[in-house]
């Protein structure tokens, strides 16, 4: 079986509508966040996961990471069903949310990391080795004694990444990691992700609205819309299929965002 195996995954939410005048009970509405989604990802793959806002990307990720329990369908990540034994499962994965921090605001990074070590029960020896490795790859050496609140956005994202990789997860899920970063930070971040993927064999699932991230990192893209998987395959083919200007090489596309927009439009999103 593949490392990640998702089969006929369905999840719907009940949303309470605003109460209208004269109606005693609020009407409820069912929103189908995921409708029959299936895919497989092999160990060591680096996959882009895109789709317009509200397409169901974060729902998928929440299910994969064991936070949410789906309505139906089968999910296996590394042979485990994520929501069945949350603590066991999450010790094997790492998650970075672009706009949310998991580090402590007022204390030096090193203290945060050391506490994360305790939370994930990483052995001291392993922790030291991994921390050295990550600080070098992420160029965090000078910042380890600085509190998080004094870091710039780019430094903060690097610090976040280090924090979520300390326990050497098999799977890293990134949600909009490059949002708000300047060009230098973005490039550095992409380099690091490529390194982590190639050297450590970490499987990476990346959602982003920045198409350049996808172009730079992912050979495979999944497109989600209205809770269904619409496309799964190479980036090159996706672009050829939906490019109105019919340019062939990825590098020559004047504006990838335009192509994606035209694709969303074509798919009726």
């Amino acid at each position: 079986m593949s490392y990640i195996f998702v089969d006929h995954l369905c999840k719907s939410f009940v949303v309470r509508k605003k109460r209208e005048k004269g109606v005693l009970l609020r009407e409820k509405e069912t929103v189908h966040a995921l409708q029959d989604v299936s895919f497989e990802i092999e160990r060591g793959e680096l996959v882009g996961y895109i789709g317009p806002n509200g397409a169901g990307k974060s729902t998928t990720v929440k299910i994969l990471s064991g936070i949410l329990v789906p309505d139906s369908g089968t999910v296996r990540v590394g042979g485990r069903t994520p929501w069945e034994n949350r603590k066991e499962h999450v010790s094997h994965i790492g998650v970075v949310f672009g706009q949310r921090t998991q580090l402590w605001w007022d204390v030096p990074l090193l203290d945060s990391y050391s506490l994360l070590k305790d939370i994930y029960r990483v052995p001291e020896e392993k922790y030291r080795k991994r921390l050295d490795e990550l600080t070098e790859a992420l160029q965090l050496g000078d910042l380890l004694r600085t509190p998080l609140r004094l870091l710039s956005l780019g430094q903060r994202m690097r610090a976040e990444l280090c924090g979520s990789l300390l326990h050497s997860p098999e799977l890293l899920y990134l949600d909009e990691p490059t949002i708000g970063l300047d060009a230098v930070s973005k490039l550095a971040l992409r380099d690091f992700l490529r390194w982590e993927n190639a050297e450590k064999g970490t499987t990476i699932l990346l959602t982003t609205h920045d198409m350049e991230d996808i172009v730079a990192l992912c050979s495979r893209v999944m497109v989600l819309g209205h809770g269904s998987k619409l496309y799964d395959g190479g980036l090159q083919e996706l672009l050829t299929q939906y490019d109105t200007t019919k340019t062939v090489q990825v590098e020559e596309h004047q504006n990838i965002d335009q192509v994606i927009a035209s694709m969303y439009k074509n798919l009726g999103l």
């Binding site: 929440k62 936070i67 603590k87 066991e88 999450v90 994965i93 998650v95 949310r100 998991q102 939370i119």
Partner: peptide, 18 residues
């Protein structure tokens, strides 16, 4: 409200402990 609870759920520890 701000979703930090999700972050806690992503760690291999009891929620109340955290």
């Amino acid at each position: 409200r701000n979703g930090q609870l999700d972050t806690l759920m992503l760690r291999p520890r009891g929620i109340l402990t955290q």
